[in-house]
Each structure stands twice: as structure tokens, then as C-alpha cells.
């Protein structure tokens, strides 16, 4: 899709996709991203289309270097696409990300997007509960925050309980295991009640057993609280649990099933 077409793009409505009644949270249309190198153009993403609906769990699986993280960064408004559009459907209507200034993008990230990273990225100088509260601090003035402090702290406690770490509020992130840190990171991502949780290899740094309990936590959050997830991962066991499974090869979504991709990958590995 060219830039011109992208500009003329009309946000999708439920009428266009009548088979699913759930409202759309995110639309990505024709996302491309290339980097200009000294004498060539490195194309990382080549026209990605993606729709995420409320309460959906979407996984994007692919090998390292196929552009998964780049896609996630573009959707998460940390990076901008070379062409294509990202549209967030908020309560008060659709917002196209490419037209936003820094301030609005930061606001969207804060209010509507939650990030979960492979390496947790908790702030080491800050206690568990304050790490969770941090997103609530970012867009509130001190006075505003003080007024709502009790409420916010209650919510953070509730989230900590939801991820199974009740009672660990005052601990420093350094004293937690990897799995526990990731739970805190998930609680932090949920703090501002985002429309969408973006997870970049959320279990990539955890052992198989911890990964498994983490997968169960994701499913639990999805089922009980209708949390919308978008995973990018190279872990087939996580990707397999998602409702919508995308396979990404060389900057594109390939029209193959996850199982075919896994077989293909196993063959590739064997060939090597």
C-alpha cells in the first residue's frame, strides 16, 4: 500500500467485518519499515495488515530478525512506520497515530497501551508497588496524584494480587525472581487500564516451567478481565495459545498455520 492510499484509508467499521461483533481496538494497515543504509535499503517490514479486537489474544510468531519487535514498536508508537497507518479505536473515536505529535503519542502510550518486555524493565531503585504505580504518576501533576493516591494505590494492590504477588509491595525488584519480575511488569502495564497489552517476548527470558505459569496468567487475565493481548514471540508454545495466530517471515505475515511454520522451522534447523 502506498503512502497516498494510506492517507485515503477509511477506518474499518464492524460492517466491513461482520463475522466478529467485538469492537476493534487496533488496526494496522500496510505497515512498512525500511532503514536507509549507506548504499542500500534494508526492508524490515513489507506491508503488514493487522486487526486486533477487544478481548482478543493475538500472537505474532517468527524467528529472530524477521521484524517482530519493529512491528511492535511501531504499533506501540515508539517508532514510526515508513508507510502505512496505525489506528487506535478509542472510546471517543479512531485516532490515526501517524498524524500525532510527540505529546499525543506519549499520552496514547500512557493511557491506552501497556508494554511488557522480555527483560521486564522494572526500575531498580523503586519498590514493587511504586513500579506498578509509575504509569499513573507520569501524566498526573503532584497535586492531582495526591488527591487520587489512595485510589491508585488500591488499584496497584489489586493488580499485584491479580498477578499473584499480593504482599510483596515493598520489596525491591532486585529481590524477585525472573517470573515474579515479569508479573510485576504485567501489573505495571495494566495500571492505566490500557486498551491493548503489547508483549515483546514476554517469556523469552524465563525457564520452561515459569513460562508455562506465565502463559496461564495471560490466559487467565484474558478470560477473566477481557484483557487484549498482542504477543510477538518465537516461542511456539505461547503463540499456540493465542486465539489469532500470525506467522511472520521476512517482514510479512505468511498465510500458513503456526504448525506448518513450526515444522518448517524444525526442518530449517535440521538442515543447518
Amino acid at each position: 500500500m502506498s503512502d497516498l492510499q494510506a492517507a485515503e484509508f477509511r477506518p474499518a467499521t464492524p460492517d466491513d467485518l461482520p463475522e466478529d461483533p467485538r469492537p476493534i481496538v487496533l488496526e494496522a494497515r500496510g505497515i512498512s519499515r525500511h532503514y536507509q543504509l549507506a548504499d542500500s535499503k534494508l526492508e524490515v517490514l513489507r506491508g503488514i495488515d493487522l486487526v486486533v479486537r477487544e478481548g482478543e489474544m493475538v500472537s505474532v510468531m517468527g524467528m529472530s530478525g524477521v521484524g517482530k519487535s519493529t512491528l511492535l514498536n511501531i504499533i506501540g508508537l515508539l517508532d514510526t512506520a515508513s508507510s502505512g497507518t496505525v489506528i487506535y479505536h478509542l472510546e471517543d473515536g479512531p485516532v490515526e497515530a501517524s498524524g500525532l505529535n510527540e505529546q499525543r503519542r506519549a499520552e496514547l502510550r500512557n493511557n491506552h497501551i501497556g508494554f511488557v518486555f522480555q527483560f521486564y524493565h522494572l526500575l531498580p531503585d523503586v519498590s514493587v508497588i511504586d513500579n506498578i504505580i509509575l504509569p499513573a504518576m507520569i501524566r498526573r501533576s503532584s497535586a492531582h496524584f495526591r488527591r487520587e493516591k489512595a485510589e491508585i494505590t488500591d488499584r496497584a494492590r489489586g493488580l499485584l494480587d491479580r498477578v499473584g504477588l499480593a504482599g510483596r509491595e515493598t520489596q525491591s525488584p532486585g529481590t524477585l525472581s525472573g517470573g515474579e519480575r515479569q508479573r510485576v511488569a504485567i501489573a505495571r502495564a495494566l495500571m492505566n487500564q490500557p486498551r491493548l497489552l503489547l508483549c515483546d517476548e514476554p517469556t523469552g527470558n524465563l525457564d520452561a516451567r515459569t513460562s508455562d505459569t506465565m502463559h496461564k496468567l495471560f490466559l487467565d487475565l484474558n478470560e477473566r478481565y477481557r484483557t487484549t493481548f498482542l504477543f510477538v514471540t518465537h516461542d511456539p508454545s505461547l503463540a499456540r495459545r493465542a486465539e489469532v495466530q500470525k506467522v511472520m517471515i521476512d517482514g510479512r505475515f505468511e498465510d500458513i498455520t503456526l504448525e506448518e511454520a513450526i515444522d518448517w522451522r524444525i526442518r530449517e534447523d535440521a538442515a543447518e
Partner: peptide, 16 residues
């Protein structure tokens, strides 16, 4: 630096 990346991803602006 990493904290700064985290803060930006959580919605802090450059100005912030």
C-alpha cells in the same frame, strides 16, 4: 538510560 526508555514507553514525553 534503560529507565529513560521505560519511562518513554510508559508515556513520558521528551519534555518530561
Amino acid at each position: 538510560t534503560r529507565d529513560l526508555g521505560v519511562l518513554r514507553s510508559l508515556g513520558a514525553t521528551r519534555g518530561g
